[in-house]
Amino acid sequence: MSGTFVSGLSRRHFLGTGLAAAAALGAMPAFALSDAEARALIDKAVADINAIINSGRSEAQMYPAFEKLFATYADVPQIARSALGPAAKTASKAQLQSFTTAYQGYVSRKYGRRFREFIGGRIEVTGARPVKSYFEVISTAYLKGESPFEVRWHVSNKSGKNLFFNIIIEGVNMLASERTEIGAMLDKRKGDVDALVQDLQRA
């Protein structure tokens, strides 16, 4: 693979590193987010994550903790629907519900697996700004032995609470990546959402 591409990836470190840090954003009042508040919250979240990682528990034991962070601070129903794409329109209510539940566990395991890369790292918020109908929080992630890289969080209160719905790491967009992945999984099942749900539960 391309050397330049690989070093690009290194900075991005996929999405795993910051997911739970975003968790802290959920507790904030609608669009009254200040730099200092966001920084303090994310620092606190990072401290919590490090506590989980350094607890000496096995990776499998960490997943529930990450899933809880994700469920509390991300708009999981909206992210799940976006990942499912057009199929969300034709799926039944019950299918959507079981998909959302399965997806939440799947995402927590997928990104939870990457959290060990975060040991010894930190995220610093450098700015926050309103964009269109949402809020963008800009941060820099510092990981041990890596060049710092940029992480942007998209936060909305359209669910009734402040929750994040997307993370962008060095230009790489979590929603877009998830949509590609879930779309491919659904294609393999020839559009059968129930089969997809079973695959997600096993993945």
Partner: peptide, 13 residues
């Protein structure tokens, strides 16, 4: 970068 999942043509959860 911006994808607005709230304004896409999906069912409102």
């Amino acid at each position: 970068d911006f994808i607005d999942p709230y304004e896409e043509d999906f069912i409102d959860p």
